[in-house]
Each structure stands twice: as structure tokens, then as C-alpha cells.
């Protein structure tokens, strides 16, 4: 609690509260609520039953109302805490409601009907996690397939990105050759070519290559990232050239120099690029949306968006699958946040 109390009591050096202390405090606490709140809210909601989701005002925890099977009634009846005329509270099952009056029975003595004003009764509820929100989309819809597609695209694209980008970065950082500055210029100039500018012609290229409705059509256009080449090259420039010379004197072939000397030494930058690439590819949306039109090929992002756009949105499934989609990124965030933040601060790239 030391950190918390220090945070609460922290002031701008002096003895009294400066206005900036108050602004800081408000901003940070507000930020905590606004930044984390929505995701946490979503996670809690994802465990609610459709009935609980439709409730207003909503509860924070996922509740289900308790029901009981009462002798003489076919369907299970909902249980309520009812306030009796004598002031005591009793658990009763509701048979039906007429206007402001509820007809209720005591589950233990089902013969006698008690009339209670609906304002005098509150539902009996217990916390319960609707895990079927998670299991059903996997077992009965295609979400398992989407998950697999997303994993495949992410892993494959990241591996290829790491290999081809590091090879290019090696060439651009450790060799003198004609056209090197031209290659660098082209890469720099296209650092900012967004998909939205080239999506029409790119689509035609993908379909002429027969990659429409093919996961490779999603993967290939993303792997030659200028950003990756740029990050890796900057890092490789810091590897002393003498090491390469030493390896050449040691009879290493250029390929050996690449994978036995340069690649291991570039590991920190490769790790940063790998993390970025995983997040990018996992989150990609517009391009998969264009290339994939067959349901069994959807990635999670595309599947989620299509399902959520349908007329009878089944929010309980959507919310659960949103949480599933969030999980890898949240894991990356928790364990590798430091890597990413220093990576961004160092390169200004996202």
C-alpha cells in the first residue's frame, strides 16, 4: 500500500497542494477508469446471460435469478424475496403477475397463493458465469476455425517478416553496393504508403495470383514491411564491421555470417519487431475483409465484425469472442509492455 498512499499524498515538492497536484490526481484516476473501465466492463459483460445483458440498469457482476421447480407447476418459477404484511421477509416463487400485484407461492407450501405488491419483492440472484458464451461459439459456430486462421496468419506472417526483413536489413547495413541508397530511399518513401491507397490494385494483383480467398493472400502483402527493414537496419548498423571482417577471415560464408553472427546479435531488435508484427497481424482487419469472402477463411477480426453486424446480434457471444480476440494482445501487453514502449519511443513507429 506504500505506493498507493505515496501516490495519493504526493504533492509538488512543497507542503501544500498545488493546483497541478489536483489536476494530476484527477487525470490519472480518470484515465484509469476511462482506459481500463471499458475493457473490464466488456469482460464482465461477456459472462452474462442474454437476459442479464438486456437488463437496465445493468449490474456489474454477472447475476442469474434463482428459479425453483414447484410442485404443481410445469415450468420452473422465479424466486423472489417478498416482504410480508407482518414485516418479515420470505422467499416466494412467482406464479404470474397482474398489474402491480404478483401472485406468489411458497415453494414449501405450494397450495396457497400469496398476493404481493411488485414493489415489495426483489428477485433472488446469485453470481454465475455464463461460460457457454465462450464454449458455444467455438463448438457450434466457426470461431474455432477463425481462431486457427488468425493464429496461422499471425505466426506465418511474423516468421516470414523476420526472415526477409532481416536479410534485407543485413544487405542494406553491411554491404556497399550500387543501388543501395536507391533501395533505402524506396523503403523510406513507402514507409507511409497505407493500404487504403493501394487496396484496389492490390486486390487485382492478389486475384490474378489466385490468392483471393486464400490466407496467403492476407499474409504475403504484409511481410515486406519497410518498418521492419528500417528498425533492423538501424540496429545492425551498431554491430561493428570488424566482427564481419573477423568472420570473413575465419572462412565464414556470407550466409553463415548472416545467421551465425549478425542474426544472433540482432536478437533484441528482432524481438521488438516480432512483438510488433504479432500485434499488427493479429489486429489486421481491412485487408482480410477484402481478401476473404468465404466464412471458413475468416480471421477472428473479420468473423467478429461480420457477426456483430448481423441483424439479430447475439451480444453474449460477440462479447465473449471479443474477449478471446483481446487475450493475446493483453498478454503481450502485460508481459512485453516495456519492450514495446521503449520500441515506440525509440523509433516513433507503430
Amino acid at each position: 500500500m506504500g505506493v498507493a498512499s505515496r501516490f495519493i499524498l504526493r504533492r509538488r515538492g512543497g507542503k501544500s497542494w498545488h493546483w497541478t497536484d489536483i489536476v494530476t490526481w484527477v487525470w490519472l484516476v480518470g484515465g484509469l477508469i476511462i482506459m481500463f473501465g471499458p475493457a473490464v466492463w466488456l469482460a464482465f459483460s461477456s459472462f452474462k446471460t442474454p437476459a442479464a445483458l438486456a437488463e437496465f440498469p445493468p449490474s456489474i457482476l454477472p447475476y442469474v435469478t434463482s428459479q425453483a421447480t414447484v410442485q404443481g407447476y410445469d415450468k420452473p418459477l422465479q424466486l423472489f424475496d417478498a416482504k410480508m404484511p407482518d414485516g418479515s421477509t420470505k422467499v416466494l416463487a412467482e406464479v404470474r403477475r397482474i398489474g402491480l400485484v404478483a401472485q406468489m407461492v411458497d415453494p414449501k407450501a405450494p397450495g396457497e397463493i400469496v398476493r404481493v405488491n411488485i414493489n415489495d419483492r426483489t428477485p433472488v440472484r446469485s453470481v454465475s458465469f455464463a461460460t457457454e458464451n465462450y464454449t458455444t461459439p467455438f463448438t457450434q459456430f466457426d470461431f474455432l476455425q477463425y481462431l486457427w486462421n488468425s493464429v496461422f496468419v499471425t505466426v506465418t506472417a511474423t516468421l516470414i517478416t523476420l526472415i526477409v526483413n532481416s536479410m534485407a536489413a543485413f544487405a542494406l547495413s553491411k554491404y556497399e553496393f550500387r543501388g543501395r541508397s536507391l533501395a533505402m530511399l524506396v523503403i523510406l518513401a513507402t514507409l507511409m504508403v497505407p493500404l487504403s491507397v493501394i487496396m484496389v490494385p492490390l486486390y487485382s494483383i492478389i486475384s490474378s495470383l489466385g490468392l483471393f480467398n486464400n490466407l496467403w493472400g492476407v499474409i504475403l502483402p504484409t511481410v515486406a514491411t519497410p518498418t521492419g527493414v528500417f528498425i533492423l537496419r538501424q540496429y545492425m548498423l551498431t554491430i561493428p564491421d570488424e566482427l564481419i571482417d573477423a568472420a570473413r577471415m575465419d572462412k565464414a560464408s556470407e550466409w553463415q555470417i548472416y545467421w551465425r553472427i549478425v542474426l544472433p546479435l540482432t536478437a533484441p531488435a528482432l524481438a521488438v519487431l516480432a512483438i510488433f508484427s504479432v500485434v499488427w497481424r493479429w489486429n489486421d482487419f481491412l485487408w482480410p475483409l477484402i481478401v476473404l469472402s468465404r466464412r471458413e477463411l475468416y480471421t477472428l477480426q473479420v468473423g467478429l465484425s461480420i457477426y456483430s453486424g448481423e441483424l439479430n446480434v447475439q451480444w453474449h457471444f460477440i462479447l465473449a469472442m471479443t474477449v478471446v480476440t483481446m487475450i493475446p494482445v493483453v498478454l503481450v501487453f502485460i508481459f512485453l509492455q516495456r519492450f514495446i514502449t521503449t520500441g515506440i519511443a525509440g523509433t516513433g513507429l507503430k
Partner: peptide
């Protein structure tokens, strides 16, 4: 939130 996918 920066890492979250736009769809999410």
C-alpha cells in the same frame, strides 16, 4: 488501448 485491435 493502443494494442487493442480496431475491431475490438
Amino acid at each position: 488501448p493502443v494494442l487493442l485491435s480496431p475491431v475490438v
